[in-house]
Design a protein around this nucleic acid. Structure first.
Lengths: 215, 215
DNA sequence: CCTCTTCTGAATCGTTCGCTCCATAAATCT
DNA sequence: AGATTTATGGAGCGAACGATTCAGAAGAGG
């Protein structure tokens, strides 16, 4: 019945009084707050104060606190999906592994005023107060990324890029574990160069050993 | 002034009406709730309902919601500290790595009625509403564990157990990343055997390659 | 100009929050 | 036994929560 389509970045109909704040910017700022304080830990008053807008503006633009949260999550989730998709499209498996890890680290540790860290692994899953849809979406994202990587690794094994005995599922699990671990450490304190060094070492160990079928 | 020492597991003075619930058990149950729903996401009413006790009992036993949270965190944190300390005491570095990863996975994935998963990496850091003391404590714990591992790895390099060129700090960071990643994945959906396989592969890649100085 | 549409600010709704109070129950101590 | 100490259960406190409402402000279309 109600056709409240909380308009996305580009306003289609520009009649009426124009919005006084930058919508995309508000989503980014909100994401950073949600990431640092969790969903329940971030009140609407905190949001409106930090974003510099009033309650009614927030609800007019996003419908609800959960709506804003979901949009923030989706915005960042798609970045990680893109990283995976671009990575698995690489020609050799070494580059695939390297890009997944290092590109993600770069994404995790972007200059703080535009980036909230990895909202995806941490804040979402630990707060069941947030909408169930959102956690399902995030679970699907991880599963999707993992699946893409798994398929790519299986192909690499068939192509002889990886040793024949390699267990594709287990290797995928390891890379995913390192990825999640990098995400966690980026949220705590760890410097970008340290994370990159970790990514580099992981890439090196995985590729140098598994490419030579001397196992 | 007030000497409210919310008595720990063993009651020293057993005068007065005895407590009707198992205090330790309540801490475990509370930890599981905090882990799944976050600090702000877990209300005192949820806690009292799940733990089967009344508000006044909870506050008499733990002082406050934050007090119960802190005790839950510390309880589990000490388990991980112990895993690290026992692991770094092992004779050869291969066993050190293996024990840190596999023992932690076992701890992460204990039968669900007694275990909350890794409360430490996730729920605590993402909720700034929880006491600042707690996050500082958790940060110190991670730093302490990492330091213990770093020292052990440096010794292994000196002893020739690891290749001379090995960068101890980076290797420590990788193991920590895998550890955090295993923790995250245990919180989501991943089966114990998959996590163990990841731990095993990580151990294998790290040890087989770095022990032979053919790098 | 006027009308239509949309956004803004303030007040405020009902609910839930963490927490306290108090009368009562159940144990120990003398 | 009585006195003392501690735990329980229920009612309810003030504050903060997410969300709503509405009169007015500010643009666009005619």
């Amino acid at each position: 019945m109600e056709r409240t389509i909380y308009n996305a970045s580009v306003t289609e109909r520009n009649r009426g009084r124009p919005r006084a704040f930058d919508r995309d910017r508000a989503v980014l700022d909100a994401a950073r707050l949600f990431w640092r304080r969790g969903y329940s830990g971030t009140s609407t008053r905190t949001l409106t104060a930090a974003l510099g807008l009033s309650t009614s503006s927030l609800y007019a633009a996003f419908g609800s606190k959960a709506g804003l949260f979901e949009e923030a999550v989706r915005t960042y989730a798609e970045r990680y999906r893109e990283i995976y998709q671009q990575a698995v499209a690489e020609k050799d498996i070494q580059t695939v592994v390297e890009r997944i890890l290092t590109d993600s680290v770069h994404e995790f540790t972007q200059p703080s005023d535009t980036h909230p860290g990895c909202l995806i692994s941490s804040a979402v899953m630990t707060d069941s107060t947030s909408t169930l849809d959102t956690s399902a979406y995030v679970a699907e994202l991880h599963s999707s990324n993992e699946q893409a990587l798994l398929v790519r690794i299986e192909r690499a094994i068939q192509d002889g890029e990886l040793a024949a005995g390699t267990n594709a599922a287990v290797l995928t699990g390891l890379i995913q574990s390192v990825w999640h671990g990098l995400s966690v450490r980026s949220n705590v304190d760890t410097a970008r160069e340290d994370l990159l060094a970790t990514a580099q070492l992981a890439h090196q160990l995985i590729c140098q050993q598994l490419t030579s079928p001397t196992s």
